[in-house]
Write a protein that binds this DNA or RNA. Structure first.
Lengths: 371, 371
DNA sequence: ATGAAAGCGCTAACAC
DNA sequence: GTGTTAGCGCTTTCAT
């Protein structure tokens, strides 16, 4: 029926329905007033022509696209994916679409994405920022609005943010472990991704590839130290290691820790990638969990439950973070203020990977790599 | 410096540089010809004004937005997430942005998303379709182009698609299991999501909520039966169960199978959600893997390696599927033809969850739910 | 090499 | 209640 020419425009519909284009516009947008009969004619004509209002035309007029941008380090990471889902859920209720992209921890790439987003005239952008305060400062100037999710940039306190209460999460985990009797607890933390390049946005093509996700370094470790101190447990520098939260590096760090200090009785991994490494290393070293070592981590991802034994973890509300960030971006844009970051509570999910302190690790175990 | 008025337009730049707007356009797009000195002046003025060309204006003129739509059942599902990553990677190289949304297996929601995408005038859409041939037939008419990824709709063979060779994957798994000596292999398949509502796109607000992901039912099961038959192993209907690949339903199905037939020696789960259920049930029943039952699944997700023992699985190239689908959509739009679906190879990843056939399950094991 | 002008499809005044 | 009109910011002939 319909000739395959080009999609119908508001003008076509107007002609077909024998009305002016403004009437068509009104009939569709609901604004203004149209008589019921006219509206019906218009809608019928539109249906007949397979008419879809062009968001391009509308956007041009309104100077906004009706979409938001979402930048995460990696859509494949379970935490990020959950956060994305939260944003999608909220955006949907607000009638906005979401342009998603992954920066893979590369500040240059991130800046590039922001650029594209600005060109698209998104109504705002939500980001788990990778780095370079300067870039984001510039972005915030030119973007309608920006909100950070799960992480902040130290140099940009004025940008609204939605965060998990990481410190609280780590604290509860440490308290739990110490309550179990552990005193020598290893901390597997995330190393800061890049050597803090605070250079201004130079057009240099040098793209320092940062690692994957990489949670905000610092706050977790600080919480670990503080809680220990508060509990009168000595803090041993030797037990605190930082690694890039990537497969190999994390594995190496975990292995180093567990072999160097055969006397650790528990390991707290500050992220699921680190936790994975800890589990794998323990298995490789033939350490029984939790008999020989207790293991716990931050981020309650799916596999934590499938592990044997299931892993105790701090659940961070990734989906809620995304949802709230989107809300903050779109709904609460009214009350603009340098409000401090929204902190969402975490929850300690106790499973079977942490046990009460035993006297000593079985002799011979964990001192050498096992076949 | 820059007054916070409204973002600069091409006109502003033209004025600032003392040239016509066409020149500015040319300077930015690279098309046409501009003298080096003029281009420099233009670029300088643009930088000064923080000018970003509006994709809205360009899109309106060009009748395309420079973005594509991507519809998946659930961004949180590891397979989907990987597929999304593939699409993003390809889109990036082609300079397109990606509007992502999740349909959660609900055909109505999916149709709604397509509608929005059409309004946005996306250059094409990639989808893991949930259902309703009619909706997609309509979508294909009005969309610039559509490519299916990972699944197809039986009624729409003319829509290009990129699929994993599921049949091949299952076949290799069955051959492997049979080679190990197994004869009574349970098959945990995915039940078709909805009662096949082939109703035309009615505006009825009734939204039948389909389940999560849900792989294409049928081909995996058929491959299972065929391979068994080919290998001269009797096919027992009793060992083939279908479940919605959601937590509870899958768990129930797996439990039912394992308890009803205490003599199964291996279970093949046709998806990672089903595999998860199998692992959990086996653990609940106190069955040792692989001593009492061997377990294997389709989809090599992250936790397969963390399981104890690590799970043998068929890896399906989710990322490649996404990448190829995007390529097909954007690059190969020239050679349009009812070419048959692109099939990407799978790979059998052998780990420790499948063992040679033992004589019998230890007495008492697996006959009742264990604490 | 560059400028003027005509829209792309839409919304929002403003007339009637 | 409905039509007319003036742009929104851009690309693209077509002149020059």
């Amino acid at each position: 029926m319909a000739t395959r020419a080009r999609s119908a425009t508001i003008k076509d519909v107007a002609a077909a329905a024998g009305v002016g284009i403004a009437t068509v516009s009104r009939a569709f947008s609901g604004a203004g007033s149209v008589s019921a009969s006219t509206r019906e004619r218009v809608l019928a004509a539109a249906r007949e022509l397979d008419y879809r209002p062009s968001a391009l035309g509308r956007g041009l007029k309104l100077r906004r696209s009706g979409g938001i941008g979402l930048i995460v380090p990696d859509v494949t990471d379970p935490f990020c994916a959950e956060l994305v889902a939260g944003v999608l859920a909220c955006a949907r209720t607000l009638g906005e679409h979401v342009i998603v992209d992954a920066a893979h921890g590369d500040p240059a790439r991130e800046a590039e994405i922001v650029d594209r987003l600005v060109e698209q005239r998104v109504d705002g952008v939500i980001a788990m920022p990778a780095g370079r305060d300067a870039d984001w400062r510039a972005a915030a100037r030119v973007c309608s609005s920006v909100v950070f999710a799960d992480r902040v940039l130290p140099g940009l306190p004025e940008i609204p943010a939605v965060l998990a209460d990481d410190a609280g999460g780590v604290r509860s985990l440490v308290e739990y472990l110490v309550g179990l009797g552990h005193r020598r607890i290893g901390f597997l933390g995330a190393a800061p991704p890049a050597p803090s390049a605070t250079a201004t946005a130079a057009a240099s093509a040098a793209a320092p590839p940062g690692g994957p996700p990489g949670p905000p370094p610092g706050v977790r470790e600080r919480a670990f130290r503080d809680t220990l101190a508060q509990l009168r447990v000595p803090v041993e520098e030797d037990l605190i290691v930082a690694a890039r939260p990537a497969g190999d590096a994390a594995y190496a760090a975990a292995a180093g820790l567990l072999q160097r200090r055969a006397d650790v009785t528990a390991v707290l991994a500050a992220g699921h990638l680190l936790g994975e490494a800890a589990v794998l290393v323990a298995r490789g070293l033939d350490l029984r969990v939790p008999a020989d070592v207790s293991i716990a981590m931050v981020d309650d991802v799916a596999w934590a439950e499938l592990c044997d034994p299931p892993l105790t973890a701090v659940a961070r509300p990734a989906r809620d973070i995304g949802y709230r960030a989107c809300e903050l971006l779109l709904r609460d844009r009214a009350r603009r203020g340098p409000a401090r970051p929204v902190l969402l509570p975490t929850e300690l999910v106790v499973r079977g990977s942490c046990g009460p302190l035993r006297t000593a690790r079985a002799p011979g175990r964990g001192t050498a790599r096992h076949a």
